[in-house]
């Protein structure tokens, strides 16, 4: 393998890792707070991408791209917020909340995907990458767009982490995730905080969707594959800390890029699943996890 190939694989692995980190932390935040896996996350990615695409139809260039991303993130935050009251809250007191939430989120995913199909039609779309041109990276030309995506993804994760650690509202969200009853006794509106958590998760999904949409083609089911990968990331990395899925995301992204080159593209998921199973056999709580889940 030449240095150029290595640099190319490294760069695409890192970009993939950034995307997976964005999606997986959105999933992990909901998982730690509610104990529920949000299967609608993939459809949220797709919907986010379509909303941004619609905005870029009326605008041009980098500003249009960023505006599209912003609008998409804002709309998806509201949608995620509302989803809590429709999909989770009515079943909160039920003993089988986890199973019910699996079904309701799957239903939401199906509804969203079909709504996308109805409103935007089956033809694939692409968000035009606004940042054209290449830069030299270890002897290979890498698109500036890839770097911009990686940078925005990392910045968004940093912003989310700072929000959760430093602001009172973010600390309240973590409090709800760690001890719901004690959070109630502190006078927090727990339902609203949980809804906010899902909203934040949907917002990260939208951002990821915008990036996916500018790298690949958008179809109503564009989120299915990233959802699967983020699931692997969350399980592989564990969810003890906010950062654990992020490390795992880069491991998965790089593993995918390199296995696609050394094996065949179709084998990449198999490699990832094998990796996940081996890690789970040795360390059931995930690579960076402890037995308890907290935020």
């Amino acid at each position: 393998m030449t240095l150029e190939t290595f640099a190319f694989l490294l760069a695409s692995g890192l970009v993939l890792g950034g995307l997976y980190a964005l999606m997986a932390s959105g999933l992990a935040v909901v998982w730690t707070t509610l104990g529920v896996f949000n299967f609608a996350h993939g459809a949220m990615i797709a919907l986010g991408a379509y909303i941004a695409w619609q905005v870029t139809q009326y605008t041009t260039g980098g500003a249009g791209f960023l505006l599209g991303a912003g609008v998409s993130v804002a709309i998806m935050f509201c949608l995620g917020f509302a989803m809590h009251y429709v999909l989770v809250k009515p079943f909160e007191l039920h003993a089988n909340l986890v199973l019910l939430a699996v079904i309701t989120t799957l239903a939401a995913a199906s509804i969203m995907e079909n709504a996308i199909l109805l409103s935007w039609g089956p033809r694939d779309k692409q968000i035009a990458p606004p940042f054209t041109g290449n830069i030299e990276f270890l002897g290979t030309a890498i698109g500036i767009h890839d770097f911009v995506i990686l940078a925005i993804a990392l910045a968004a994760l940093l912003a989310l982490a700072l929000f959760l650690r430093r602001t009172t509202a973010g600390r309240a969200l973590r409090a709800v995730a760690q001890n719901r009853e004690a959070a109630e006794l502190m006078g927090f509106n727990v339902s609203r905080l949980v809804a906010m958590t899902i909203g934040l998760s949907a917002a990260t999904a939208a951002l990821a969707g915008v990036f996916v949409g500018s790298l690949r083609f958008i179809s109503p089911t564009v989120g299915t594959d990233p959802l699967m990968k983020s699931l692997i990331v969350v399980i592989l990395g564990g969810v003890t800390r906010f950062t654990s899925p992020i490390y795992a995301a880069f491991i998965v992204g790089l593993a995918e890029a390199f296995s696609a080159y050394f094996l065949v593209l179709y084998w990449a998921p198999a490699v990832l699943f094998a990796m996940m199973i081996i890690v789970l056999l040795i360390k059931p709580e995930g690579l960076f996890g402890r037995r308890t889940r907290t935020l």
């Binding site: 009172t168 600390r171 309240a172 973590r174 409090a175 760690q178 001890n179 004690a182 959070a183 502190m186 308890t292 907290t294 935020l295």
Partner: peptide
Amino acid sequence: LLFPEMTVEEVLDI
């Protein structure tokens, strides 16, 4: 048990 992963400062802040 309060909030196991939060610091004293964070708990008293909220």
